[in-house]
Computed example of a mutant assay.
Amino acid sequence: MDYRFLGTIFAAWPFEADLEEYGMVTMRWVTGAVMLACTGALVACGGGADKTPGAAAATPTPSGTPSGTVGTPSAVATDPLLSGKREVTIVRVQGSGSELELSGRLEEGGDTGGRVLFVPMPIGGDRYVIKAFGTKDGHPANDDPSCWQVNGLDIEPELTIEAAVCDEDNPIQRFTIVTKGDGSYAIGSETRTLQHAAGNGLILKEAGDAAPSSTFRFVDKGPADRQPVN
């Protein structure tokens, strides 16, 4: 701050006057003059010599909110039965309550000693590779999975599901599983859905625009922690 102007103020003031009469008035007058000078020379009084004249003031960012980011809703929780981390048994809702079993072919309650524990492994969207295991009885073969696969030898329009060596890159091992909202699921492959046909058991059939006639309930049987045979 340039204090030279204060000398000019004091030089012009009649100090020979009675200080008792003018003392307090003088101090108020000088104080007012200094404040007025500071108002006109704000940069000098405010100590802002390091600021660039005309620079725009920065807009503060609200605490806890990174600048330029937009909040997004939390991701929807994954169905644990479709996470690939749980083994399930599968029962057709419209059936007798028998569990699905995979031996040579997927069927209901065949009691043929096939595999009845399944792990839907997500591969993107609503598509899954469905692994099949035997019961946990310590037999190593039961811990080595087979997978569902569309039987390529079948003739349209009715296709069956067979057991095969797992290969998630094989398109005929990719199945859709869609939650129906009532605790049940629809299972399909491409444009076909898994349905029960009298006299032919479980088949993959074109459903068109109709709702699937068969839906399935998954029953949690514990963690998918098998150690397959190497």
Rank of each mutant, 00 (worst) to 15 (best):
A57T: 03
F10V: 14
D209H: 09
F15I: 11
A44Q: 14
G7R: 09
E206V: 08
T39W: 06
V178D: 13
R192E: 05
G97W: 08
I123M: 13
G188K: 04
D182H: 08
D111T: 03
E16F: 14
E190L: 09
K85P: 00
P228E: 05
N200W: 00
N142F: 02
E168M: 13
I177Y: 11
D18S: 12
F133E: 03
T8K: 12
Q227E: 12
T78Y: 02
P228V: 09
S213R: 06
G181T: 07
L102P: 00
I123S: 07
K51Y: 13
E107I: 04
G138F: 02
V119N: 03
G32S: 10
N200S: 10
D182W: 06
D2G: 02
K85Q: 14
L82E: 07
G48N: 10
I187D: 04
P62G: 03
P53M: 10
G188F: 06
L19R: 13
L204H: 08
K221G: 01
G95Q: 01
D182L: 00
E190D: 15
K221L: 09
T31Q: 13
K205E: 06
G48K: 08
F216S: 02
A207Y: 07
S213M: 02
T72H: 13
K205R: 15
E16C: 05
I161N: 03
G64L: 10
F15V: 06
T26Y: 12
H139A: 15
M27C: 04
F15Q: 05
A44S: 12
P212R: 00
T112G: 12
G68V: 02
G181I: 01
A12M: 04
I161A: 09
K136L: 15
A224M: 04
V34C: 13
K205W: 10
E168I: 01
M121K: 12
P62R: 09
F175I: 08
I9E: 14
C147R: 01
I177M: 15
E21R: 13
F15W: 14
S83R: 00
F216D: 02
Y128K: 05
R28Q: 15
F118W: 08
M121R: 08
K131I: 00
G47R: 08
R174D: 05
L102V: 07
Y22G: 03
L42W: 14
K131T: 01
P223D: 07
K180Q: 15
W13S: 02
Y185I: 02
T112D: 13
Y185A: 00
P157L: 10
G113C: 01
A211I: 00
M24P: 05
S213V: 05
F15A: 07
T135K: 15
E162S: 14
S63W: 10
L100N: 02
I9P: 00
A41Q: 08
I187F: 14
I187R: 01
L159C: 04
T26A: 14
